[in-house]
Design a protein around this nucleic acid. Structure first.
Lengths: 148, 148
DNA sequence: CACAATTAAATTGCACACAATATACTTGCA
DNA sequence: TGCAAGTATATTGTGTGCAATTTAATTGTG
């Protein structure tokens, strides 16, 4: 690192962060046609996945799982509610807490979502070992940047 | 892949794409305080990097380098123009083409941007070899998803 | 040389992300 | 018990990303 010139340092072609940023954009773009049939955006699909595993979760729980805050999640969940996929209720124990519960339609959507991961896997066209490696490195980045 | 259950398939903890998406969000978040002193957002910083290397570039060129379209770049460049960092001129050969030229302030900003990559390198806290590996894998993802 | 096809940017509309702030509810402690 | 501190969510405002469409300029072809 330290022996790189200013020209090299400030060139996007040498920056991991830019590669990661571009890859993430490409992924969201690639999901669009796959999720169109489900009438979901990629972040909405992620929220649904959390709920399929943990129906009745709170906004806080969703935020921790997805690394997103209420400023992002509140409007996103309202959109999913208006599509009839979930209800935004209140906890009886704690009136501050929203309890997000899937409707029948929301639960049923899972069946149609099953093929999405397989389709994306094909599009990526990488070996399982490479995907595992990539995931580990990304998780390390997220973890390092979250603690500082 | 094929032996994974539906529960495993549709769990965000098993998905590379989610890890990559989260890491990219974390990166943009981590750049914010570093770029605050330069009064730049991360995408603005990326555009400036391209221009520091290639002053007078067109919107099309910037778009190819950054993998962004005019819908994103036009307003972004207008903001940089209003900050006095660049001028959005027209090509004399082809009136359709915008020629983006840095002002003195835009050129001068490069000196203060030099330390940003080093700071981010410290925040990431990964070995050079891991960063290289991560960059290669991200570039592969972008390339694979762009051709389909 | 006319004019259809192409190309470069701009515009519009929607959905994130997220900082900063506000609101409403709950808890802890004097 | 009263009230300050803390917590969960909502709101506001700014800046992306990107699909779809539009506008204006250029190029290719008969």
């Amino acid at each position: 690192m330290s022996q790189m010139s200013v020209e090299e340092l400030l060139c996007i072609d040498n920056q991991v962060c830019f590669s990661l940023y571009s890859a993430a954009n490409a992924i969201v773009r690639a999901y669009r046609p796959l999720l169109e049939a489900l009438d979901l955006t990629y972040p909405q699909y992620l929220a649904m996945m959390v709920l399929w595993q943990n129906d009745g979760a709170s906004v806080k729980y969703l935020g921790e799982k997805l690394h997103l805050d209420s400023g992002t999640l509140t409007p996103l969940l309202k959109r999913l509610e208006s599509k009839g996929l979930l209800r935004r209720g209140r906890s009886e124990q704690d009136e501050r807490v929203r309890v997000i519960e899937l409707t029948d339609a929301g639960v049923a959507l899972k069946q149609r979502a099953v093929e999405v991961p397989e389709q994306m896997y094909c599009l990526l066209g990488l070996e399982v070992q490479q995907l595992t490696e990539l995931k580990q490195l990304c998780d390390q980045v997220t973890q390092k940047l979250s603690q500082s």
